[in-house]
């Protein structure tokens, strides 16, 4: 729009009267606002929490430290397919696969070693999406610390222990959307369910 456009509407700042020119009413208004906040907070209505003792709830899809899930028999669920390591944009996952023991009939391989460098990780969650057996998941733990870089490289035992710590608060997201014996939704039905905004879905 050009400056001399006839449609351009020019707005003048409102003229202040004598009282407003002293700015005293505005200052009193400001004092009222801060005074209200001071009184409210003094009576205990604050918006901060005392962090280590109290913690706020993270959203359920918060992407924190990884865990390696275990199946019902307590075995690691991972089948060492390398999909997460391939998907990882930060190349922070290092898996050494090995032939599964003979008494594990449901899979051919398992991870002999599974190492994640938590300092390299960018917490994007793509490993979680890539995993075909829901073995790797991101938890809502975020306050991990260490005295050295080596300490922040989590091996299989540590990742499995994260599962033990968090499994009660955050159950595994492995329940299938539809039980296998019922008719599976078609691909186009998936698409409409995703595209339709909440509350407007067709019957």
């Amino acid at each position: 729009m050009r400056p001399d456009d006839p449609q351009l509407k020019r707005l003048e700042p409102p003229k202040l009267n004598l009282l407003e020119q002293t700015y005293l009413p505005q200052i009193l208004g400001g004092l009222a606002v801060t005074g209200r906040h001071i009184l409210q907070s003094a009576l205990g209505k604050t918006f901060t929490v005392e962090y280590p003792r109290e913690q706020t709830l993270r959203s359920p899809n918060y992407r924190g430290v990884h865990r390696l899930n275990k199946d019902e028999q307590g075995r690691v669920k991972c089948v060492a397919c390398m999909l997460c390591a391939t998907a990882c944009p930060a190349h922070c996952i290092d898996i050494v696969g090995a032939t599964a023991p003979d008494d594990w009939p449901d899979r051919e391989k398992y991870p002999e070693s599974f190492v994640i460098d938590e300092l390299r990780c960018i917490y994007c969650g793509m490993c979680e999406e890539a995993c075909p057996v829901d073995a790797i998941e991101l938890t809502s733990l975020y306050d991990i610390t260490g005295f050295s870089r080596e300490e922040m490289i989590f091996d299989k035992a540590k990742l499995l222990s994260v599962y033990d710590v968090t499994k009660d608060a955050e159950p595994m997201r492995t329940a299938p959307l539809t039980p296998p014996d019922q008719p599976q939704p078609k691909a186009h039905e998936y698409a409409t369910a995703i595209e339709a905004p909440p509350g407007t879905s067709q019957p």
Binding site: Q40, S41, T46, T48
Partner: peptide
């Protein structure tokens, strides 16, 4: 304390 309260914080404790 007043600084904290004006900002809806708890303040030194």
């Amino acid at each position: 304390k007043i600084a904290a309260w004006a900002q809806d914080r708890i303040g030194p404790n």
